[in-house]
Amino acid sequence: MIAKEELDRAFDARFSPEIKEKLQAARVAVAGLGGLGSNIAVMLARSGVGHLFLVDFDKVDTTNLNRQAYTIPHLGMDKTDAIKMILADINPYLDIKTECVEVTPGNVSRLFGEYGIVCEAFDRPDRKAMLVRELLTQTEAVVVSGNGMAGYGDADEIRTNRVNGRLFVCGDLTTDVGSGTGLMAPRVAVCAGHQANKVIQLILK
C-alpha cells in the first residue's frame, strides 16, 4: 500500500500546510450517495477532507452507472460499502464513516447533529425539502444542497446560490427530472462540483 507520507508529499507540493491542516481536520457529512453524493464524496476525498460521514440506504444498480461514481464491480452492493471501496483507492488514510439508513425527520439530529457542514444530495424533491428543512430547524449545520441539474442544457446555468448564512443551493433551481428530462453525467457532476467547492470554501474561510 502507498505510504501516507507519499500522499502527503504530493499534497504539500500544491498547497500550504495551513490549507492541508484545515482540510484534514474538517468533518463533512453527505446525505445521499447517488449522482451528487458519490461525486461529492470523491471530490472531497481527493481534496484531503479528513473525515467524511456518508449516508444512504440504497444499493448500486445498473441505472446508476450513467452518472454515479460506481462501476460494474459495485453492482448490488450497498452504496455506503461501494463508496468506501472507491475512496480507499483514492486515499486510504481518510477517516470514512458510513451508515446505511433512510434519513427521516426522526433521525436527522442523531445522524448530523455533530456536523458543521452537511451536503444534501438526495434525488426526490420531497426528500430534499424534508432534509434541508429538518437540518435547518434541528441542527446548527451549514447546508449545501443540490437543486436542478437534469438534462443537457447549458452547464453554466448551474450556480451556487446563497440563500442565507446557513444554506447554499447549487443548481439551476428549475430543471426537474420529472419533466421528461433524464439525468446525465455532465450536469450532475457540475452540480456536485459546485457543492464540493462550496464545502471547501466553507472549510477554508
Partner: peptide
Amino acid sequence: VEILNFVGGG
C-alpha cells in the same frame, strides 16, 4: 418570505 422550491434529480 422566501419560498425555495425543490425539483427532482440527484
